[in-house]
Amino acid sequence: MAAVLLSERALSRATTITIAEERIYDVAAREALLDRAMGEGRTRKSSEKLRRNRLPAEGLALVARHADGEVAGTVRLWNIQAGVGKDGKGVPALLLGPLAVDPRAEGQGIGSALMREAVRRAGEAGHGAILLVGDAPYYARFGFSAEKTEHLVMPGPFERNRFLALELVPGWLDGATGLLTATGSLAKHG
């Protein structure tokens, strides 16, 4: 777990949040938070096609909790193949999403704290790149840009200017071209 000091604006609720790996008892709170933050159409996005019936990458499903234990934010990363490289082999990467903060806690730095922690953990785990579909000005502060996604495509409709990548290993996505595909472990149902 990581305790994170938030901005001064956050001091009205609590001075710290705790970021930890998501646990089974977080599922209901996470889903309710995602519904509040993203609305009903959240499961129809192209990114969802890569997440459906898959487990998040090991150690990369995170929640942020207030001091009282309430889930205030969530982020998950998923194993994917980012097309193929110059050598004709698949390029392993991560897909980030969704990142969401409870609307009642917006502006407190929780989303930024989750992003920094997710990127740090992904790098420490040896992953080479993270891709996402999101607001370019927001994600630019973490090093994401559309430069490395120019020759990659999502499965289904997506906005090219919102398709971003961050290389954790310089040059990881050089020459990558083609369709993103899911490679993560399948979820067990039943």
Rank of each mutant, 00 (worst) to 15 (best):
A2L: 13
V4G: 01
L6G: 06
R9P: 01
A10P: 05
A10F: 00
T15R: 11
I19K: 00
E22T: 05
R23P: 11
I24D: 15
I24Q: 10
I24W: 04
I24A: 13
Y25D: 15
D26Q: 04
D26L: 01
A29Y: 03
A29N: 08
A29R: 08
R30E: 12
R30M: 04
E31C: 06
E31R: 10
A32G: 13
L33A: 02
L34G: 04
D35G: 05
D35K: 00
M38T: 01
T43C: 09
T43S: 11
T43M: 14
T43R: 15
K45M: 15
K49M: 14
L50H: 02
L50A: 07
N53H: 14
R54P: 14
L55H: 03
A57N: 10
L60C: 09
L62S: 06
A64M: 07
D68R: 03
V71P: 12
V71G: 07
V75E: 06
R76D: 08
W78A: 11
W78T: 12
N79E: 15
N79G: 08
Q81L: 14
Q81I: 09
A82H: 09
A82F: 10
V84S: 14
G85E: 10
G88P: 13
G90P: 15
P92C: 10
P92G: 09
A93D: 11
G97Y: 05
P98E: 07
D102V: 07
P103H: 01
P103T: 02
A105Q: 14
G107A: 06
Q108L: 12
G109K: 02
I110V: 15
S112D: 15
A113N: 08
A113V: 12
L114K: 00
L114S: 02
L114G: 01
E117C: 02
R120D: 11
A125R: 13
G126C: 07
H127K: 09
G128F: 06
A129Y: 06
I130S: 04
L131A: 04
G134H: 01
G134V: 09
D135F: 06
P137A: 01
Y138D: 10
A140W: 00
R141T: 06
F142M: 07
G143P: 14
G143N: 06
F144C: 06
A146Q: 03
E147T: 09
E147W: 01
T149P: 13
H151K: 12
L152M: 05
P155E: 08
G156M: 09
P157T: 05
F158R: 05
F163P: 13
A165H: 12
W172R: 13
W172F: 13
W172N: 08
G175T: 08
L179Q: 14
L180I: 13
T181M: 12
T183A: 11
T183H: 05
S185F: 01
L186M: 07
A187V: 14
